[in-house]
Design a protein around this nucleic acid. Sequence first.
DNA 1: ATTTATTTTTAGACTGGTCTAAAAATTGTT
DNA 2: AACAATTTTTAGACCAGTCTAAAAATAAAT
Lengths: 229, 229
Amino acid sequence: MNLELTQTEENYLKAIFGLSVSKSKAVSTNSIAEKLQTKASSVTDMVRRLSEKKMVDYKKYQGVSLTVAGKKTAVKVIRKHRLWEVFLVRHLDFSWDEVHEIAEQLEHVKSIKLTKELDRFLEFPTHDPHGDPIPDENGNIAYHTDMMLSSLEAHEKGVVLGVKDSSKSFLIYLDCSGIKLGSTISVMSKEVFDNSMKIEIEGEIMSVSQQIAKNLFMKKLKNERLISR
Amino acid sequence: MNLELTQTEENYLKAIFGLSVSKSKAVSTNSIAEKLQTKASSVTDMVRRLSEKKMVDYKKYQGVSLTVAGKKTAVKVIRKHRLWEVFLVRHLDFSWDEVHEIAEQLEHVKSIKLTKELDRFLEFPTHDPHGDPIPDENGNIAYHTDMMLSSLEAHEKGVVLGVKDSSKSFLIYLDCSGIKLGSTISVMSKEVFDNSMKIEIEGEIMSVSQQIAKNLFMKKLKNERLISR
DNA sequence: ATTTATTTTTAGACTGGTCTAAAAATTGTT
DNA sequence: AACAATTTTTAGACCAGTCTAAAAATAAAT
């Protein structure tokens, strides 16, 4: 058995990692299949291989969870992915909704020195262009425990730190609406019946659905209205 | 049949391209096998596939040659390889003997915009760290027709432009000897019996074998001795 | 608790890429 | 021209990764 991991295997580990963040329990075959756009039977096969390589714990019909080695590998790949995203946006003029698929390829390039030097070149960034934290060399992740836009109340304001859903369509929506990382948003009012919000951003007033508001990480700002009173 | 090329297929095209530069005739199965460290039977299989994809012309027992499409693809991959090498050396503190294997991975990342932006970011370099020319966006390659060190005569001097053999061991040898791109070398004398040369480089005097001298591209400099006469 | 629905796994087949061993074609030598 | 040596191709097998279709296990519903 070859101990080196293929790109596919790394992608499986990443997917399992992503799924096990929210649920602390074992991850189901079907959920992995859905996330990777493949079939459950393929997942079963792969999970068995990863189990032989001691990357996941797996008991038939009981789902999978990452071993320490598996988690370590997944985090390394995520680190590379996010570092490349920073590079693409900062130096190659990509916008944040374009970088994902390219980073998906770059994340599998194998060279410890490469990752290290890239990190240094980028001056040790802590977050990628979507606001997601970049794991450090030892695999530690500084999750930001900030609130979502949806949990801000009327007359409060905050700064956009990142997105939870980083699907292309969502990112494009944000671009079109002029919502960027670092944008300051003031909540004007909240509709009771659908939880949509009227917000003000750089002078513009617009409405966002709860769906949108639930996917924007915000840093709440001291409310100036209170101060000026 | 899938028209997208796999990394392996791209590597075969690159190898065939490399082999057909020197020999204008069709390339032999064995030479490809040797270059790619694989077996002749594997080459036959792959060449048949590439032939179906109209990337090579192939007649049994008659060797292979690239079609226009095949050459175009090969050159694109080489372009990406060399651009990444420039990036690694210039911005990530790699030395020229370390970059090859990483560039072998990066060259397969698929994104037209990526290549374009990388080129711009690097300010449109014309040569990679080994002195090899970087094909332009249209696939044109500016081969330098300069001479080898071995063809310089005693009392002549020149500047190191690049290497022909870019094997790791050779590059390491050059590093240790203090021979760099841009170094000025003066030929002191040539031994008749083994064609080795006594050279002077940055004040140091050393001896290089013909083997070495035949693999260094040089730009001959006007001989100051002649001028001062 | 038995039946039904869902999830998961197996079995078997396909593709891309590789190999070994043997057959076929080409080239070299006398 | 005939034999030997070399090169190239075929045949058959294997691994990684995928699929479909069917079987087995688990979960849900009555």
